[in-house]
Amino acid sequence: MAKEVLVFAEQRGGALKKVSFEMVSTGRKLADKVGGECAAVLVGDGVSGIAAELGKYGADKVYIVEDPKLKDYVPDLYAQAVAEVAKDAKIFIGGATAMGKDLFPRIAARLSTAMASDCVKLEAEGGNLVAFRPVFAGKAFVTIKISSSPQMATGRPKVFPADESAKAGAVEKVAITLDAPKAVLKELAQDTSGRLDLTEADIIVSGGRGMKGPENYNIIEELVDALGAAATVGASRAAVDAGWRPHSDQVGQTGKTVSPSLYIACGISGAIQHLAGMGSSKFIVAVNKDADAPIFARADYGIVDDLFKVVPEITKEVKKLLAE
């Protein structure tokens, strides 16, 4: 059976990313529709042990490229290895993560094919991929079809469900003679905050100019702590530009696009550029003392009041609830 649908399974530090399961599960559904096998490709060093997890989410087969040189993400080498496996696939998808966004366009160029980035829906029609994706940071959407092969797409993390569907997950090792890399990783620096990245968090509590200063973010931090490990802190550009929060915290058209299940905006007016980055959140809560703030037009729940009074109360209530 040909590998009709191939999925890039991203790992870092020997652990599969959650988005890999989301994409394998999506690949499974596409393969069932198109007819044929759903395979995954896993690249790294000593990663065979984690291949079985991909079978659980619907991979019939897992192609593994292992080499000490592939331990960390080295763009050229990953592009070479993955392109080699992907070249005869019909549909090739992966997560729109830092790695996926960097890797997929390189592979598309190598294979002289086109791709759709950061999709929020991936379907099959008449044996072909149909990709649905936001443009203008969500101010509009387009449906894309690709006439070349493989038909490539990346899917936005946390949008596609990771449904289990046990399949063989048979392993096939692929031997590749790697080129000399043109860029080398010198250092991998982890943030020290210990918090999840915005794009990976299930709950985001963001503070804007209404926070009045960096020292006041402790009330946001306390709420995030109360909400648990799946929660993290975000910010508007006004807060980032004021130097209150790091750039990596910025949500919006020139920051990160996020789709958590809950987004709580505190002291954020709801400028069009901010809404663009968080508009696809499943539930939006706004706390703002100005009843006319545009954020309320987008919020599922709004509280019109002083955030300095409301946020600590929300924290108290969350603690009470979660202690039950």
């Binding site: 086109a114 509009a140 508009g279 987008r298």
Partner: peptide, 16 residues
């Protein structure tokens, strides 16, 4: 090789 079939406005959110 990638063509846009259709442009659409974003789905409307129900009023909060």
């Amino acid at each position: 090789k990638a063509t846009i079939d259709k442009w659409e406005n974003p789905p409307q959110r129900a009023a909060g």
